[in-house]
Nucleic acid binder design. Structure first.
Lengths: 170, 170
DNA sequence: CAACATTTAATTGCGCGCAATAGAATTGTG
DNA sequence: CACAATTCTATTGCGCGCAATTAAATGTTG
């Protein structure tokens, strides 16, 4: 298991240590391991439920869920660099490079080295990629109906999740 | 791309079709593709933020996030079959079998064929696996503090997410 | 009880997701 | 201007996550 720790791990020293706990705190937290599962796990389950709901719809247009997220961004913002895509979607080039190659192979996007700065690659939509947007509208309509909540509820939940994400990222 | 569609796809007929849309509805939904990204995407981002927060803590005990979820279940419920684990975590044997082999190789769990029904495999904790629980208490304490919300807020959000998951799964 | 159907775990194949690394282009500095 | 540091994309390796398939055990039915 390469990505997990070797016996001597710098992070043992480098990371902020868990605060020292009193026995009472330990008992309380120990009992909450169940609740812990319910907290992080509710997120895990909801995310996968969403992806399961999207899958049959996305299959019809031959897109995976992360590919769909990339297309959403491109439909919304137009041509973007790989780095900008990654920052917006919290993905790195290790994920995006092969994903974008597949989208290119499918004929939906074009990858072009920036002439001014040849380190950068600009991703832009092809006519085929633009045309997909009409089908995506139907997909969104179906999913929105499936959530069973109105626009206001969805916004409230979305804002709450963004708060949580921001808190976890600090 | 084997897992996506062939040109002739039974699901095109079999799945519930998106409702026919008036041009006005199309315009409204088209504008909402941005909001769509924000809805499903907030979930995507929050989930990954959580996993990023867990990762350095889990690295110290040589567990991945899904392995940690399995251990949480075993700490809570005791020995379980692979099928029960999968139903509780929304994972199938394709994911669990190799994951459990790695947990076994790490010495945390034991896999044993059920004597009464030899199709089933019962997963139980080893002393090493049970001992890990103490470290997990610290991990949970750190994460709970990081979320920045109290137990009540966490419960509200958890319930809301479970509602959403249930709605998406119908 | 023999043939067929169902249940269960494991395997295979592919697409992420991410750490680590490599390699090329650009920028900063003496 | 040469050279080091930085930026940016691509590659490699490993662990999921899931569909499809396989294989073994159990259930069911004629």
């Amino acid at each position: 298991m390469k990505r997990t720790n070797s016996p001597i791990d710098p992070s043992d020293q480098a990371l902020a240590p868990a605060p020292a706990l009193t026995p009472e705190e330990r008992d309380r937290l120990s009992a909450a391991l169940t609740l812990d599962r319910q907290l992080c796990f509710a997120l895990h389950a909801a995310t996968h439920a969403f992806q399961r709901a999207y899958k049959p719809l996305l299959d019809r247009v031959n897109l995976t869920y992360p590919q769909y997220l990339v297309m959403l961004l491109l439909w919304e913002r137009g041509p973007m660099g790989v780095k900008a895509l990654g920052e917006a979607l919290y993905l790195d080039s290790g994920t995006l490079s092969p994903l974008l190659k597949r989208l290119e192979a499918a004929g939906h996007v074009e990858r072009r080295r920036d002439l001014a700065d040849e380190r950068q690659v600009t991703i832009s939509l092809t006519p085929s990629g633009r045309a997909l947007r009409d089908r995506a509208v139907d997909i969104f309509g179906t999913i929105a109906a499936r959530t069973g909540c109105d626009a206001g509820e969805a916004e409230t939940l979305r804002d709450r999740l963004h708060q949580l994400r921001a808190a976890m990222d600090t």
